[in-house]
Amino acid sequence: MQPTKTRGGRSGAPRAAEAPAALGTYRGICSTCIHAPTCAYRLKSTEVAIWECDLFESYETPSLLEIVERHGRKRGAVIAMLEEIQAKYGYLPTHALQVVAENTGASMVDVYAVATFYRAFSLKPRGRHLVSVCLGTACHVRGGPGVAKEFERHLGIPAGETTDDREFTLDTVNCLGACALGPVVVVDGHYFPHVGIKDVEDILAHTLTGLDKVEVEGDRRIFPIEVNCPRCNHSLMDPSHLIDGYPAIRVTVSHGHTHGWLKLSSLYGSYNVEAEHEAPKDAVVNFFCPHCHAELRGAAACPECGAPMVPMVVRGGGVVQICSRRGCKGHMLDVSGTAVA
């Protein structure tokens, strides 16, 4: 990576008078600079400007500053800041290190030392999917190196590198603490146990189609349920609309001033939903029965996030409760109980 000199904090008024002297040293287009529209070095709108100048300030600087600010500009929080920056960008850009160093009072040397010390930090841009092949002792003796080599062959990159299309970053790690599953491969937080050379292609294909998609067929933890309203006991099932191949559960939801239908997959274990109005993630919405218009609101709080749970009577006995917070996967199934708030 070609490092660029960045001096986020020091810029004052653009020194227009000094500009012409530097014009002979064009080195690229400084399109990432926050001063680009008013830059004195940039004479015409189509003109390129010098890449490295004292006034360089990245467009990203305000959001970086916000992260630094949130941790109180403390030197002790440098690791936490770098973690957040890494989570946001997928790697640690050079100017991000500079911003952290300048605003915490730590020196660039210290920040760089931290950023290179921990394997979790990367100074190079990473791919969309991170493939970690474990080469710890247990995985090693069970064929981890062969798996790593197979990944290298399939992706065409050595371990530690990123593919040209930025899809995959291949990494080897020295123990994931899942030795009983060895050789273990972790892709974006999903653990693949007992990986053989033959499985490599499948894992990569699976990753590209999306790891979070629920496999309806073949997963025995997933089964369809039919539910009724706990108040009027009308069926909440909508046979005319299928989600995951089964009739959907139809309820009315309201969030703020918007009301609309929400259709949930009737498969226990599937989180697929369709909504008339998309409520923001993490918003707590109110559920209503489409027949009696009573609010479906239970006494229990979600064990995951604390939002109120929504009870529905399962046909055949029992109550299923789902969390009313969008995006929260908290749920309870009580097959024997009949207590409904």
Binding site: V109, D110, T116
Partner: peptide, 9 residues
Amino acid sequence: AKAIGFRNR
């Protein structure tokens, strides 16, 4: 100065 320091591990 703090111009040089340890890197990596």
